[in-house]
Computed example of a mutant assay.
Amino acid sequence: MRRTVLGIVPPILVEAPKRAIKFSANDGYKRLYKDKFELQESRLLNVLTGVSAGMTEALIVASPDLVKIRLQDKRNAGKYLNTTDCVQKIFREEGIMGFTKGLEATLWRHALWNGGYFGSIGVIRSTLPKPTDKQSELINNFVAGTIGGTIGTILNTPFDVVKTRVQNQVAAPFKYNWAVPALGTIMREEGGRALYKGFVPKVLRLGPGGGILLVVYEVVTGYMRKYLM
């Protein structure tokens, strides 16, 4: 229990910026690709902007994720007093580049989740009954976001497993380096099921979380368009 609480500060600090970047970057890339490359609204464009937004998001969250994982790893029990102490020791022992460990796997993780999420919610919305009022529109957004979040989680969980293993490594030689070869190593040694360790609690969090995200985004942007623009 103490290890879980100990590692809660980094994700809390980065949570709000991460969510803001997810949607703002997606909207920004969509405008960019439409203006510069004359791409039309399509499922492919939604996947492309989602992947691009996910990679942007990954640059922000990779280092806080590293600190969180080090704090929560039971093998580090007693090594770190708190978040500040963990950051200082990583810098002292591994240098500034130590905070980039697992960045490539984090890029894969967020690119796949966002690509699956933004690429699917439009399709899911189109299959749902046409909303007749604000409440039914919110319900549709929640359903679409939840299914989209579930799809994203199915796609990215193997790279989440790899990212955790890469970031948990401290002393060389490192068993896991690049994400795709690490996937092969895990499958060869432990089987394909090992790539989905922790999937159930993760999808229970990120599935409905994707629905809540979409609802909040639509409500906030609707309010801003109505009263601030």
Rank of each mutant, 00 (worst) to 15 (best):
R3V: 01
T4C: 01
L6F: 01
V9L: 04
P11K: 08
P17G: 10
R19L: 15
R19W: 07
F23G: 08
G28N: 14
F37E: 04
E38M: 07
L39M: 14
Q40S: 05
E41Q: 09
S42M: 03
S42I: 04
R43H: 03
R43T: 14
V51A: 15
A53E: 05
G54D: 12
G54P: 07
E57W: 00
E57K: 14
V61S: 10
V61C: 11
D65P: 01
I69R: 11
R70E: 02
Q72T: 09
R75H: 09
K79A: 14
L81R: 13
T83L: 07
T83A: 10
Q88E: 13
I90P: 06
E93W: 01
M97P: 02
G98F: 02
G98V: 04
G98D: 04
K101I: 10
K101T: 11
E104W: 02
W108M: 10
R109D: 07
N114G: 04
G115Q: 08
Y117I: 02
F118L: 12
S120K: 01
I121M: 09
I121T: 15
G122N: 11
P129C: 04
T132I: 12
S136V: 07
L138D: 06
I139V: 14
I139D: 06
V143F: 04
A144T: 11
A144Y: 06
G152L: 08
T153M: 13
L155I: 09
N156Q: 04
T157E: 05
V162H: 08
V162Y: 08
A171N: 06
P173T: 13
F174P: 04
F174R: 13
Y176T: 11
N177W: 05
N177R: 13
P181R: 13
T185W: 00
E190I: 00
E190V: 00
G192R: 12
K197G: 13
G198D: 07
G198I: 08
K202G: 01
R205C: 09
L206K: 05
L206M: 12
G211R: 07
I212W: 03
V216F: 02
Y217E: 15
M224Y: 00
R225C: 00
M229D: 03
M229I: 02
